[in-house]
C-alpha cells in the first residue's frame, strides 16, 4: 500500500447550470494516509459530497489529480474505474440505498456479484461481513423488514464485504435517531481500528469524536483540518462555532 491512500492535487470541479457555472471545488488538495478516519463537515453546497464522489471515482474533476493508493483514478476509463471501485472502495450511501427486492445477505453480496468467487464463497464472505455488523441473524430479511439502523448496518456490511482499503460514507447517520447513530459510529470506529481507512461526510459534530481527523469545508475549499479530539474537547472554538453555524 502507498504511503498516502488518498492524494488530491489542486482538484477543481465546476457544475454548469444553463449559462451559469458553479465552482464546487476550488483547487482542493488533500492527503489521507492509510488507517485514517476522516470526518468531512460543511454546509450544504460546500462541496463535501462532490469531494466524496470524486474520491470514489464517480465524478470527473475538471482539473487536478486524484490518486488513490498510487493509482491516478481519472487516467482510468469508466469501466476500469468501476473495477477500481469494486476492488478498492466500499460505499455507504445516504439513505442506505439497499436494493429493495434483495435480502440483507443478497444486498451484502452485491459487490461480489461480478467477481470469480464461487457462490458458496460469496455467501460465506457476506455472512462474515454481516456478523461484523451484528446482522447475521436477520440475513434473510428484506430491507423493508429492517429498522433504519439495521439497514445502515447492512449497507456497511455491503461496503466492507470485499475487504476494501477505503470506505467512503455519505451522511451515514443522517436518517437515524441519536442512539442508533452512536451505535453506527462506534461500528465505524471499530472498523477503523481494524485497519479500514474511512472518509465520512457528516453534518453532526458529535460524529467527529469517533473519527481521528476532521475537515471543515466551505465554498469548495478546506477551511479547517484538525485532530478530531481537539474538536470534541472544545479547544478549537473557532472550528466548533463554524461547524455549528454551518449545520
Amino acid at each position: 500500500m502507498a504511503d498516502l491512500l488518498i492524494k488530491l492535487e489542486q482538484v477543481k470541479k465546476i457544475y454548469k447550470t444553463g449559462e451559469a457555472e458553479v465552482e464546487v471545488l476550488r483547487n482542493l488538495s488533500l492527503t489521507v494516509p492509510p488507517g485514517e478516519a476522516v470526518a468531512v463537515m460543511g454546509p450544504s453546497g460546500s462541496g463535501k459530497s462532490t469531494l466524496l464522489s470524486i474520491i470514489g471515482g464517480l465524478n470527473l474533476p475538471n482539473e487536478g489529480k486524484v490518486i488513490i493508493d498510487g493509482i491516478d483514478l481519472y487516467c482510468l476509463n469508466r469501466e476500469r474505474r468501476a473495477d477500481f471501485r469494486r476492488e478498492y472502495l466500499g460505499f455507504v450511501f445516504q439513505h442506505f440505498q439497499l436494493i429493495p427486492y434483495l435480502t440483507a445477505v443478497q444486498n451484502t453480496m452485491l459487490p461480489l456479484t461480478t467477481t470469480r468467487y464461487p457462490a458458496r464463497k460469496k455467501r460465506e464472505m457476506a455472512m462474515q461481513a454481516l456478523e461484523r455488523v451484528g446482522m447475521e441473524r436477520k440475513c434473510n430479511r428484506l430491507p423493508n423488514q429492517l429498522s433504519g439502523g439495521e439497514q445502515e448496518r447492512v449497507a456497511i456490511a455491503r461496503a466492507i464485504v470485499n475487504a476494501p482499503p477505503l470506505m467512503l460514507a455519505d451522511e451515514p447517520t443522517g436518517n437515524l435517531d441519536t442512539t442508533t447513530a452512536q451505535d453506527i459510529m462506534k461500528l465505524f470506529s471499530s472498523l477503523n481500528k481494524s485497519g479500514l481507512t474511512i472518509l465520512m461526510v457528516t453534518h453532526n459534530p458529535e460524529n467527529t469524536k469517533y473519527m481521528k481527523r476532521t475537515i471543515a469545508m466551505q465554498d469548495g475549499v478546506i477551511v479547517s483540518d484538525t485532530d478530531s479530539l481537539a474538536v470534541v474537547a472544545g479547544n478549537e472554538i473557532e472550528f466548533r462555532e463554524s461547524a455549528g453555524e454551518l449545520r
Binding site: G56, L58, E79, A82, D83, R85, F93, P111, R158
Partner: peptide, 14 residues
Amino acid sequence: EIGIFRAIGFRAKD
C-alpha cells in the same frame, strides 16, 4: 438502483 450497481463496481456490460 442502477446508480448503486455502478457505484459498487458493476460494469456497463453487467
